[in-house]
Amino acid sequence: MISIRSGRRVLATVAATAALSAVAVGVAAGPASASTISNGFVQVCAQGKYAAYATFPYRGGFSTTVVNPGDCWYGWMGGDSWEPIDVYGIYPGSPKPIDLGEVWYNGSVSGIGIGAEGTTDNYYYYTW
């Protein structure tokens, strides 16, 4: 049999745990922060086990240089409207680049950082 005092302690502990969990979820679900890259600039980093590059289809196919693992390309791209940036990975011995995906960028609103991540078996990108 649980005493009234012990039952109150259990209820207080459960309530405190629930309150802390709600705070943690609230912090994790906060609004996304702005890019750390200055307006008009693009940064492409090869942070995985492979080289990477990006192309700008609305700019006649302009592309960054190929960025080796551990390095970054950083450049002024300007811009005053939304445009796609296509991100690719290059693996040694692979006959063609791997399409990592497409991000959208507007240099008058923000800059963008793109990180090519992962390995040849699990590749992806993220932005900041």
Rank of each mutant, 00 (worst) to 15 (best):
S63I: 01
T120M: 11
V44W: 00
P92R: 09
N39L: 04
S6A: 13
R5I: 05
T65Q: 15
G118F: 08
G61Y: 10
Y126V: 12
E83P: 04
Y88R: 01
S3H: 05
G70L: 06
V109G: 02
P57V: 06
E117N: 15
A24D: 02
G30M: 03
G93Q: 04
G79A: 06
G111R: 07
D99N: 11
P57R: 08
R9M: 14
S35N: 06
T64P: 02
S6Q: 14
A46F: 01
Y53N: 07
V87R: 07
R5E: 14
W128D: 15
T36A: 11
P69K: 04
V87I: 14
P92W: 02
D80H: 13
L11V: 10
G70M: 03
G40K: 03
S3Q: 05
S3C: 07
R8D: 04
V87N: 08
K96P: 00
G107H: 06
A51T: 10
I85P: 06
Y123E: 01
K96Y: 07
S110L: 05
K49M: 13
K96I: 04
F56I: 08
D121Q: 10
I37K: 10
A51L: 06
V27E: 08
V14Y: 09
P97G: 08
S35T: 09
V103T: 09
D80A: 15
T17R: 08
A51H: 04
G48W: 00
D86Y: 11
